[in-house]
């Protein structure tokens, strides 16, 4: 299912009274408290807040990597609070694309093979996989780097390969955790341009965690978390195309 398939007007992420707690020894640590958020198809949302505010935890919950302690969490029609781990893995492979701060490419695989990796979970044949990989590398502008290993690429190029890996299966939702956090200003701007293009040209719904106001400025909507509580949720009036850092 791609973003363009989402039914107009219906949120692809519905969060109601969401709580998340972690347990360390005898202590219970509340991380998210009473979060309510709707996210519609085609939105580009930035999650901001100080360290420990619960941004990454919320991102992980939306991406189906973790389960809420209580509350309702429906993403792309799936109730993530009541889904088995195996079903969640399958669901993630079909609907979610991940972009990490440190790219997290597999070092022993080439750029091409890294992008192909999530496609090995599908029923696509070799030729179809090759077409998907070629298209993804084309989108990120690295068609000529397919046979390069991650160590042979710059940080910005690695992150672009990671983005190609995230979009190779044409997922509905892209989740990015500090995607520019490890990049220089120029590379970061290129990555943000790419994310913005994916949102606007390819109608990808994006949730991005960031500390960086310049990165957040590219999003259409800003959520601000503090100490596990959503303190601000508003359209980003200042969202600027091609804004630098």
């Amino acid at each position: 299912m791609s973003a363009t398939d989402a039914r107009d007007g219906e949120p692809i992420v519905q969060i109601r009274d969401l709580y998340k707690e972690f347990h360390r020894d005898d202590f219970t640590i509340p991380v998210l408290m009473g979060i309510n958020v709707d996210l519609r198809a085609g939105e580009f949302m930035a999650l901001m807040g100080p360290s420990g505010s619960g941004k990454t935890t919320l991102l992980n919950l939306i991406a189906g990597l973790d389960r809420p302690t209580s509350g309702t969490l429906r993403v792309i029609g799936q109730d993530l609070g009541n889904t088995s781990e195996g079903a969640l893995a399958r669901w993630r492979s079909q609907h979610i694309g991940f972009i990490f701060q440190l790219y997290n490419l597999i070092p022993v695989l080439t750029a091409y093979e890294n992008v192909e990796l999530p496609l090995t979970l599908t029923r696509l044949g070799k030729r179809e996989r090759r077409e998907h990989v070629a298209a993804a590398l084309e989108v990120v502008g690295l068609s000529d780097r397919g046979d390069h290993y991650p160590r042979q690429l710059s940080g910005g190029q690695e992150q672009r390969v990671a983005i190609a890996r995230a979009i190779a299966t044409d997922p509905t939702l892209l989740v990015a955790d500090e995607p520019t956090g490890d990049l220089d200003a120029k590379s970061a701007a290129e990555i943000l341009d790419l994310l913005q293009r994916l949102n606007e040209e390819f109608a990808k719904t994006i949730v991005m965690v960031t500390h960086d106001p310049h990165a957040a400025a590219r999003a259409k909507r800003l959520l601000h978390l503090e100490k596990g509580v959503l303190v601000d949720d508003q359209p980003n009036g200042q969202a600027v195309k091609g804004a630098g850092r």
């Binding site: 399958r90 079909q94 999530p118």
Partner: peptide, 16 residues
């Protein structure tokens, strides 16, 4: 460890 976590994140099941 991180690599395995990434594999699982992108949808690799326990069995795989």
């Amino acid at each position: 460890t991180t690599e395995v976590a990434v594999l699982k994140a992108i949808g690799f099941s326990r069995g795989r």
